[in-house]
């Protein structure tokens, strides 16, 4: 056992896991996180807490993670390289673990250009792959980058995650980048939102053939479409997103009031397909600012009750 987290235990037991996502508020209001926790507790196995996602300043991912855990929801703390150098990163890894965090998602981070502080200076001392390597070294070798050693039993016991985008350019290279994250020491990966099932199957087949799915748990990222407008926006304007016309047409086929229901139906169909794809260990449900719908989605997908190990 690397970390003893619920997520790790379930994945090792071969359960089809479901993880959720929670964005902390743009204030010091802990009740926002506590409120979101209500819709996630008992419905998902672990919850990603975003780290100033899209470079918009929010309550820190560490604080958000701790509040979730106080509410009985296991956190998967996100950590980006944009805002911290190697000194701050290692310090936060140690601090988070000391406070009970057991899962950490290692990311490069969105460029600050898209956030609310585009004038900021960025860091990017490490990149996401080097971050994975660093956390793994701290955990498995009990060493800091400097070589400084920790006494046995005092290493940060973290289950290490990463994000992968199977659809970004260049497509042929994406699976090699997954291999590189595995070589760096990642335990599980969550993918970018998937809508193009055929292309994702192709990616997973490639990964499976290369023996990668033996080495890492792949959780397929899914996001329900709230409306036709959202689907169109995702298709046209979000980089690295592949939304096939089929999704657009299904949403077009229903009246406006029924689009969010149809969006959830599409998602439920996706979950059934994903369950059958070899190497897919679970789903990562990103119901962005739609946490209140998580219970019904998970129930309708037949994924209740959540297993315990």
């Amino acid at each position: 056992m690397k970390s003893g987290s619920n997520l790790e235990k379930l994945l090792n037991a071969g359960e089809f896991v479901i993880t959720g996502e929670c964005g902390p508020p743009r204030s010091a209001d802990a009740s926002v996180v506590r409120e979101k926790a209500k819709y996630l507790k008992g419905y998902v196995d672990s919850v990603n807490v975003t780290d100033n996602q899209t470079s918009v300043v929010r309550m820190s991912s560490l604080a958000g993670s701790l509040i979730l855990q106080e509410e009985g929801v296991e956190a998967n703390m996100q950590m980006v390289c944009r805002d911290r150098n190697r000194i701050a990163i290692q310090s936060d890894v140690l601090g988070a673990t000391a406070l009970g965090i057991r899962n950490m998602l290692c990311l490069s981070g969105d460029h600050q250009k898209f956030g609310d502080h585009p004038e900021a200076k960025n860091v990017f001392d490490l990149d996401s792959i080097q971050l994975i390597q660093t956390v793994k070294m701290m955990r498995d070798e009990g060493k800091l980058i400097s070589g400084q050693e920790m006494a046995e039993g005092t290493e940060p016991r973290l289950f290490i995650g990463a994000a992968v985008n199977p659809f970004a350019d260049p497509f042929e290279y994406r699976v090699y980048r997954l291999a590189k994250k595995i070589a760096a020491g990642v335990d599980f990966v969550q993918t970018q939102c998937i809508y193009n099932m055929d292309k994702f199957k192709e990616y997973m087949k490639q990964a499976h053939d290369m023996g990668l799915t033996e080495k890492v748990h792949v959780l397929a990222g899914i996001t329900p479409m709230k409306s036709l407008g959202m689907a169109r926006y995702m298709q046209k304007s979000v980089p690295g997103m592949d939304v096939p016309d089929e999704i657009i047409n299904r949403l077009k086929g229903v009246e406006k009031g029924g689009q969010s229901k149809e969006g959830i139906n599409i998602l439920l169909d996706q979950i059934q397909i994903l369950k059958e794809i070899p190497g897919v260990a679970g789903v990562h449900l990103m119901a962005i600012e739609w946490e209140e719908r998580v219970p019904e989605i998970v129930e309708a997908a037949g994924l209740l009750p959540r297993p315990t190990v």
Binding site: S108, D110, H111, A168, D169, Y173, A184, G240
Partner: peptide, 28 residues
Amino acid sequence: SKSLLNGPCGGSADGKCEVDKEIDCVWH
């Protein structure tokens, strides 16, 4: 744009950087 030594990140599209379509994605 992120000085990645193990790129590319997931944000490039059609060989261009997500930060600005005028920037070639060097990792591409």
